[in-house]
Design a binder for these strands. Structure first.
Lengths: 158, 158
DNA sequence: TATTGTTATACTCTATAACTATA
DNA sequence: TATAGTTATAGAGTATAACAATA
């Protein structure tokens, strides 16, 4: 006898599966990019700079949904490795435009390769059609909820 | 001109969408259960105890994939609110079997209601058939990766 | 001596707010 | 005075390892 009476359950809903699988996928990805000596936030920042280069740190912080102070450490680490550079605006010397260096572009390609392998590992049990189906459904939900494309919302609390 | 040459991109892959949406869904759920004065880990523990009552803390820790020491605080908080109780095993007094109280069963129903509302909010842009499709695909991936059904893997690092 | 649960400690990550420099 | 970036501080959450009770 169960201690609690349960209503008819057909397992967890889609939202729970989404959260659980999302955490799993994020963890796996984090493990993979360790090979490039990158953390997920650093990776996200590199991709964001590649997508819209020349932004100030404030603008980038707003785009990623993080306090500007957090960007400092991330940019510092990437700049120290020569992947990113701050270019001072001559007109307004307060602004630091963010750009990828040549090495930054190079590592971005490797990130893409890791992402591809990761995607294959996660979706391995799906055929091409199912995978496209899944991507379509997920993209619809993401759009419906106003998620910024290409930006992991985990910046807000991860 | 872009600073970096990009290969033909058709947006983020399914795995990235999964991670991003998963984080979003988890955050939304965390906000919702604030109404019950519960955190996500507490909620997960309540559901786990309901699913398999009478387990020792060690067994529960292994099931959830967390160090046993972490359970102490979680159980303490829930026990202090009268939602959970530790029943000492008479035969082996080291063991503390975990059970839900009547209030614990009660709040579990409210958690289910919150979960239902959450599921509707997340999947609002999908019709019933699409939602079932999504759940099927996600369940397949989860199974393929050996995720324990009903357990959020975030216990391992969240 | 081995095991359950607990406590103590330290570490990682993040946000908030104070501070510097430029405007 | 207002804004961009930085630094300092503190808080939440977690893991590791030492500890006490029971076997």
């Amino acid at each position: 006898m169960k201690a609690c009476a349960h209503r008819p359950e057909d397992g967890p809903g889609a939202a729970f599966l989404l959260a659980a699988l999302g955490a799993h996928a994020a963890g796996q990805f984090a493990e993979r990019i360790t090979a490039l000596n990158l953390t997920p936030p650093q990776t996200g920042l590199l991709r964001a700079i590649a997508a819209t280069p020349g932004q100030s740190q404030q603008a980038m912080a707003q785009l990623l949904g993080t306090p500007p102070s957090r960007l400092v450490g991330l940019v510092d680490a990437l700049a120290a490795r020569g992947l990113v550079e701050r270019r001072r605006n001559a007109a307004d010397r307060r602004l630091h435009a963010l750009h990828l260096t040549a090495d930054g572009c190079e590592i971005l390609k490797r990130i893409a390769a890791v992402g591809q392998a990761h995607d294959d590992a996660i979706c391995g049990s799906l055929d091409a059609s199912e995978r496209a189906q899944l991507r379509t459904l997920l993209a619809r939900i993401a759009d419906d909820h106003g998620l910024t494309p290409g930006v992991h919302p985990g910046y807000r609390r991860l």
